[in-house]
């Protein structure tokens, strides 16, 4: 009994001492904290406070009573979601598309950064970097119009096919064709932008290392393997964790602007399903909030899971 009181006392003292140190640090760096304040306030107001909206997943939304006043319906929304075949299609598609993005799209910026680094001595680096980065600034609304224009019946793709005597193909209404367009167009749009972080990591490498390696007779591939890749590894690990945490976001903007009903079976992801449920179908906000909540819980679990695996087995720093 006595020892437990002592422990409690010593715990309280330690906590008080820690908060005292923290407060001293805050006072010491008050201007830095002041600079940080608007961002923190922004996140509290627009990200944390609205989180109370997840209550809708357990309620029957009443427009006149708002989120807090609406009556509870316990797990009725969950039953409706799990009983809806569209949800499971969207769930499967989200996982498949996101896994595809991790496997196919994630390594591309790393390869691109290494290749750009290899031509770093020439003037062409900036030209290539600009060319690769530029598509990131085109919105999916515009880009989808261009892509649909390329692949429609009279579009460039079918004209080229016709030129070689091949049969015309409706790429955007066939599941496999649409999936290929989905990955390729996203790589084209985002690879250049995503490789900036890797290029920044490479820029931090001491050039003398390469010179020393050259003197030792290491070829380009060996230099890449022994010098560039070890530096990139930790950046790649952090970005991989973030990408895994984002796995349930299959890319709403791109898919929403590109998809059509013929490829829903391949392209309808949870975000597009939520959008249609909330605004087009008669299911309502409770239903779509439930899907959103499930998505967030899975994302959260995956993020922490990936962080644990990377830090535990990969010997890299996590988040």
């Amino acid at each position: 009994m006595e020892s437990s009181t002592q422990l409690e006392y010593s715990g309280k003292t330690t906590a008080r001492r820690r908060s005292g140190i923290l407060w001293k640090e805050i006072v010491k760096h008050k201007y830095l904290y002041l600079l940080l304040a608007p961002l923190v306030i922004f996140y509290i107001i627009f990200t944390y406070i609205p989180m109370y909206g997840v209550l809708l997943a357990f309620k029957e939304f009443d427009y006149s009573k708002g989120v807090l006043g609406s009556p509870w319906n316990h797990f009725a929304n969950f039953n409706a979601v799990f009983g809806n075949p569209g949800f499971w299609t969207a769930f499967r598609n989200t996982l498949l598309i996101s896994m595809g993005r991790l496997i196919i799209e994630f390594p591309i910026p790393i390869v691109l950064a290494i290749l750009l680094n290899e031509i770093s001595k020439g003037r062409l680096t900036r030209v290539f970097q600009t060319v690769f980065t530029f598509p990131h600034f085109i919105s999916w609304v515009v880009l989808s119009g261009i892509i649909i224009g390329i692949f429609n019946d009279q579009g460039l793709y079918n004209q080229v096919l016709a030129l070689f005597g091949a049969e015309k193909s409706s790429v955007l209404t066939s599941g496999p064709g649409f999936t290929i367009v989905l990955f390729v167009s996203n790589i084209w749009k985002e690879a250049g932008w995503s490789c900036i972080l890797y290029l920044a990591a490479i820029a931090g490498i001491n050039l003398e290392l390469y010179e020393a390696a050259e003197v030792d007779g290491a070829n380009r591939l060996q230099q890449m393997k022994a010098i560039t890749w070890p530096v990139l590894k930790s950046t790649a690990a952090v970005l991989f964790i973030l990408a895994v945490g984002n796995v349930m976001n299959g890319g709403f903007d791109q898919i929403f602007n590109l998809y059509n009903s013929a490829v829903y079976a391949y392209s309808d992801i949870l975000d597009t399903f939520v959008y249609r449920s909330a605004f087009t179908d008669a299911t309502g906000f409770g239903f779509s909030t439930t899907v959103g909540l499930l998505k967030s819980v899975i994302n959260f679990t995956l993020l922490f899971g990936a962080n644990y695996i990377v830090t535990r087995f990969g010997k890299e720093e996590g988040l």
């Binding site: 209404t173 009903s261 013929a262 829903y264 249609r276 087009t280 179908d281 008669a282 299911t283």
Partner: peptide, 18 residues
């Protein structure tokens, strides 16, 4: 009947045609 939305009907027809 009120809950039975027909908003996806045209999409279903399109898929059947294709």
């Amino acid at each position: 009947k009120n809950k039975l939305s027909t908003s996806t009907l045209i999409d279903d027809m399109v898929n059947t045609i294709l």
